[in-house]
Amino acid sequence: MKSVAIYGKGGIGKSTLASNIAYALSKIGLKVLLIGCDPKADSTINIIGKRIPPLLDLMKINKNPSIDMFLFKLDNISCIEIGGPEPGVGCAGRGLIVGINYLLENLDINNYDFIIFDVPADIVCGGLAVIVKEKYAEGVIIVTSDDFMSIYAANNICRGLNTLKVNAFGILYNRPMKNGIKYIEKFSRKVNLPIIGIIPYSEEIVNANKIMKTVIEVYPNSNISNIIKSISLSILNIKEGRIPNWLSINEIEEIFHEDS
């Protein structure tokens, strides 16, 4: 069994990549569990084709919901959304702790070949860090683009992982801009993490998202689908991760200014 947590700046494409990787691995015969950890509860929408009831919403009504109430399947993929509060109220971190604990008490995750935790944005508090802090995921994949704020967020994640002494498997470079690779390569070197793969901007992904499906399901033979399938296999074959370094704000700025 292998387990990964996907982190990255909000809106960077974590959920899209998580659902596509889950789909790709399920198609080679693996039993995959995709756990959405974002309060928005939209990580699994492209697999199931609709929103599924979040675990915490069910627990609000019934403290002990049965697995079939919150676990939804498409072939080899099982999907769960932890859920959480509305924006601006409550505590998402506490929600994640409570939801994950309930899940692990009631579901034997060893029955799965591959588990993906799609985690909200940064490691902003102890609660949101629970997935890696408690080692529910063996390692982290950081999704980033090549703009300053995405790299800034990726660096914050590296800092959190470094503090928590948690392994990262590498970086997924999403939606590269022209010449952006040099920034990501510099960042990757400085934080000592490999670039696992590069996912180009794709109209097919946008179209598949619109109809709540993975791009691999809608365009199975497209170039983008082949790239994601290949990246998924790379992730599957990663043997070990490493604790990343992190950069000061000046060092991040240097990444962009060195060539200006």
């Binding site: 627990m59 409550g90 409570v98």
Partner: peptide
């Protein structure tokens, strides 16, 4: 309880 701590208790 945990429900209100997660979802807000107002």
């Amino acid at each position: 309880s945990d429900n209100e701590l997660i979802f807000g208790g107002e």
